[in-house]
C-alpha cells in the first residue's frame, strides 16, 4: 500500500539550518548534512533543503551544502531556493538533488516548470506555494493568496488556480505552505490543503503548523495530503519520525514502518 510520507525540512541560511516563526524571528538549529542524516536515520521518508534567503538576497543555491548533504543520503532529496533557470536546476541535480522546489521563480515565469520538466522529468519538479488565507473574503480558503520572496510579497494570484496551472505546466508535486499556521505548532491548514488536493491529480505536500502526531493524522485524513512536511518539531527532539509514525499507524494512517 502506498504510504503517507513524512518529510523533514531543513531551512538553510548561510550554510546553517535555521527555523523561523511565521517566516521571521530566525534561530540556529545546526549543520544541514548532519541533520539530514539524523532525520533519515530516524525514519524521515524524504529530506527537503530550502535555501530560504536565496531569492531575497539574489544569491545562487548553496551547491556545496547540497553536495555534502547528498553524499551519503539514500532517501529522496529535494532542494529549493534561488533556482531561476533550467541551468540552475541542472547544477542542483548534478550536486545530488533528486527534485527541485521552485517558488518565486515559477510565479515570475511559469514556463520554467516545463523547462525543467522536459529535461529532468515532471517527477523532479516541485512547485512550492506560500499561501495566506484571504481574511476579508467571504471564502477565505478559496480566495487564499499566493505569496513570493519568502512570504514577503503578495501576488494577487489565487492558490487553487495557481496549483492547477502548475500541474498543467508539468509540476510533479505541490508543496503547499500555509503562512498563517507556519511555525505556530497548532496544526496544518487542513481546509486549504484539502481544497488544493482535490483540485489537482498530482501529490500535495502539506506544510506549516506541525506540532503533534494528531496534526499529521488530521492533515492526511481531513486535509487529504499525500505527504506532510515539518521542521522545528524534529530539530529540537520534540519527536522523531519513527515515534510519529508509530502514533500515525495507531490512528489508521498507512506509513513506512519499519524504517
Amino acid at each position: 500500500m502506498l504510504t503517507k510520507r513524512i518529510i523533514a525540512c531543513l531551512d538553510v541560511r548561510g550554510g546553517r539550518v535555521v527555523k523561523g516563526i511565521q517566516f521571521v524571528d530566525i534561530i540556529d538549529a545546526g549543520d544541514p548534512a548532519e541533520l539530514a542524516h539524523r532525520h533519515a536515520a530516524a525514519g524521515a521518508d524524504e529530506i527537503v533543503l530550502l535555501d530560504i534567503t536565496a531569492t531575497h538576497e539574489g544569491r545562487g543555491t548553496l551547491i556545496d551544502t547540497v553536495q555534502r548533504t547528498a553524499a551519503t543520503l539514500f532517501v529522496p532529496f529535494t532542494v529549493g531556493g534561488g533556482i531561476r533557470s533550467a541551468e540552475d536546476a541542472a547544477a542542483v541535480f548534478d550536486a545530488g538533488a533528486d527534485k527541485v522546489s521552485i517558488n518565486s521563480s515559477a510565479v515570475a515565469r511559469p514556463e520554467l516548470i516545463g523547462e525543467i520538466g522536459s529535461s529532468f522529468g515532471a517527477q523532479a519538479v516541485i512547485v512550492a506555494i506560500d499561501a495566506r488565507r484571504a481574511k476579508d473574503s467571504a471564502d477565505p480558503v478559496g480566495d487564499a493568496e499566493v505569496y513570493v520572496s519568502g512570504g514577503r510579497k503578495p501576488t494577487g494570484r489565487r492558490v487553487v488556480e495557481w496549483a492547477i496551472e502548475a500541474e498543467q505546466r508539468g509540476a510533479g508535486e505541490i508543496l503547499l505552505t500555509s503562512m498563517d499556521t507556519d511555525g505556530m505548532r497548532n496544526g496544518f491548514d487542513c481546509e486549504l490543503t484539502a481544497r488544493v488536493s482535490e483540485a489537482v491529480q498530482i501529490p500535495v505536500i502539506a506544510s506549516g503548523g506541525a506540532g503533534t502526531a494528531a496534526h499529521f493524522a488530521e492533515v492526511f485524513q481531513r486535509g487529504k495530503a499525500d505527504a506532510a512536511l515539518a521542521a522545528s518539531i524534529f530539530h529540537f527532539g520534540v519527536t522523531d519520525s519513527r515515534a510519529l509514525k508509530d502514533e500515525l499507524r495507531r490512528a489508521g494512517v498507512p506509513v513506512r514502518l519499519p524504517c
Binding site: 500500500m1 502506498l2 504510504t3 503517507k4 510520507r5 521518508d45 515532471a122 517527477q123 510533479g172 508535486e173 491529480q201 498530482i202 501529490p203 499525500d226 505527504a227 513506512r256
Partner: peptide
C-alpha cells in the same frame, strides 16, 4: 488509470510502497 475501483487515482505514483 485515472480511476481505479470507483475512486480517482492520483498520478504520478510517488512515495514509499511495499
Amino acid at each position: 488509470p485515472a480511476m481505479y475501483d470507483g475512486a480517482e487515482l492520483k498520478s504520478p505514483h510517488v512515495g514509499w510502497n511495499s
